[in-house]
Amino acid sequence: MNKQEKEQYLRDYGTLKNQGKPFFPYAVAKDSAMALVTMAVIVAMAIVLGAELGPKADPSSTTYTPRPEWYFFFLFEVLKVIKPPALVPLATIGVPTICLILLFLLPFYDRGAERRPERRPIATTAGIFVVCAMGYLTYLGAAAGPPTQIDIPVPANISSQGPEAVASFEAGSQVVAQSGCAACHQFGENGNSGPGPALTDIGARLPAQAIQRTLLNPSAPMPSFSALSKDSPEQFAQMVSFLAALK
């Protein structure tokens, strides 16, 4: 806006304001009505949905599901869109940081005098796009199945090793499923396709040794499984050999 447009705006605004009504009681009445609606919604949700607690936090447990509050789903889903591991830091913080800076600076790069949405096609389109994208990502996050189910058929080379190998494979599959790995990794048909890489054929890409090292010393944001390896080394070993068998 140049100087003339600014003065024009202030003049027009002054006129509109003079023709308006006093804040008290007119706007106050509307605000109070809306506050009552807000209160009613909060009270109704508190009564209907309650405030249940899950099981107590247990740092050595393997049955957890790292799911954020629903309004963080869109951020969590952004992580899944960008897959190559080298780009993960970019996705986790880079994209949100850039979006936040763009949001902060909005009044400084959108300086046009026009305010009607239908005459600001770029701003309005961008706004609608962001609203739809956030809505869609939130829906994706909500629709993602519980990350505690993995059904991968026993590979031929395992079943040929006899029933003991099969049992160990299935036990490992259980441990992995209960550990919530599928919240961030894909296993065949199950699991989320990010933020972590797909593990459907991890055994073909990494030897068991390397898998074990990653589980103990993962790169962020994955949590470490060193507590599990200390508390129940058997389960941890099953986990490693299950992953190594995925080819």
């Binding site: 607690l53 899950g54 099981p55 107590k56 936090a57 247990d58 740092p59 447990s61 049955t63 957890y64 599901t65 790292p66 799911r67 954020p68 509050e69 919530g180 944001p221 994955m222 949590p223």
Partner: peptide, 10 residues
């Protein structure tokens, strides 16, 4: 609880 603990770790 479990949910809040592990979600916060991640």
């Amino acid at each position: 609880d479990q949910r809040s603990y592990w979600a916060t770790i991640v």
